[in-house]
Design a protein around this nucleic acid. Structure first.
Lengths: 140, 140, 140, 140
DNA sequence: GTGGTCTAGACCACA
DNA sequence: GTGGTCTAGACCACG
């Protein structure tokens, strides 16, 4: 589970968390029954107040996306149908368009833009691998 | 120029306006020097308070995208200043990271993601060329 | 008639005009039946839009302080009783206290503060004499 | 510290708060480092919206009079920076001119005006000495 | 509990 | 008609 918070977007942080978990759940990146990161470590990782994560999880629970078992953690509920491919492309297109517009706006040329994308994909891949590695450590 | 507000997204309305006007400027739908819709009529059209639009325009002005002449209206600037290169990369990185994380959550594979990016860049380019073509028509 | 507008006070300009004319009328500095400066020259002198002065005069008329005879000008109405001396001191004290507090805030010492007061009294005296002189010119 | 708002004066409420806190600071009623009343209780006491007080405090912070620590409160600064001498004279001149014009409108003669100024300065000095005395009592 | 932000309505200054 | 400001209510992030 990798979450990305944009502190300057003006969008409430707890909603950014909610949206990303909803998307991950709807597309199958998160599996039904899977456990979500617990509040305190997640808050620390994202450099955010614990209340904020708690609010996001509480929102997700009231939306029926997750289930909280007190003392055991939060788990993804079962009732999710994976989104169809076109829907997923549509959701992704929104984010891509924003990046392209921003690039044009900042007068970043096409080749430089694409290079930056590859650079970031590699960087985030490394981060994800480290992250999963730590999780394995925790489980062992 | 047509703006579309999503009242349920949780994203501040004024930021939705800012983003969409940036898109309009980047795509050529708005041309340098052109007058933007006046605050009051635009607010009515979008069913939003005047101040919300005023805040969006004020934000755009502080970003250097538009210029506002009190009593006359708001106008798209000719060429807003380029920031220092590192700052531009930093700002762009935020958007790119969001798109990559979204792709990961949607389980869109790397090659498909890159293909979608090229597709959207081409689409935006075509749109911009169309607008430039119209501009020539107007001048002739 | 000398009016003093503070553009940075945040107090509506038209209300500053109203208040000062009310005070001048109530204390007898303006005599019943006396003509007030007409809108256009006054607006020019104060570097203010004509609408703003018109609004002040209209407010004064609806308060019953002045009377507008279309085409002839605005005149002070008759029904004013001069304020008692203690009331006048009280009204003046408000302004004086503000100046003293500002002086303390700006760390201007007592002697310098008093010197500045004498300087400004002389300056405004000169201005008033010039002003009256012009009025005599106009009448002659 | 007791604040008094005049809702009918037309002067913005937040500026009335700003001025009165400046007075409290100048008169010693508020001491450097001391905490100001929190926004919400003060707003309730004055029967005013929270934002109005927040705006006053934000103005005071940008003037360098107070310091605000989010989540902790607002505090009177130790010694706010002195502006350049000409700027200070300019700011003070505005207040002095208002007092002089008011005196003129109220037909208060020059000698009486000056006497009133000395009277008010002495009054403020006495008040400040009283507060300093109380401060010593607190420390002892 | 603290301060900060977004949306909204009413009013102001100006062309 | 234009944009700008002040007040207010509801919500957010944080300690």
């Amino acid at each position: 589970m990798i979450l990305q918070i944009n502190f300057k977007s003006g969008m409430p942080i707890y909603l950014q968390v909610v949206d990303q978990i909803k998307v991950a759940a709807a597309s199958g990146a998160l599996r039904p029954g899977e456990v979500l990161p617990s509040i305190r470590p997640l808050a620390e990782e994202l450099r955010v107040n614990r209340n904020t994560i708690a609010k996001a999880y509480s929102e997700l629970e009231s939306l029926g996306v997750i289930e909280t078992l007190p003392g055991r953690g939060c788990f993804l509920k079962e009732n999710h149908t994976a989104l169809r491919k076109e829907v997923r492309r549509k959701l992704l297109t929104v984010e891509i368009d924003q990046a392209i517009v921003q690039a044009h706006h900042l007068q970043v040329r096409r080749d430089e833009f694409l290079a930056l994308i590859h650079e970031r994909m590699d960087a985030l891949d490394r981060k994800r691998r480290t992250h999963e590695h730590h999780q394995e450590d925790d489980q062992s």
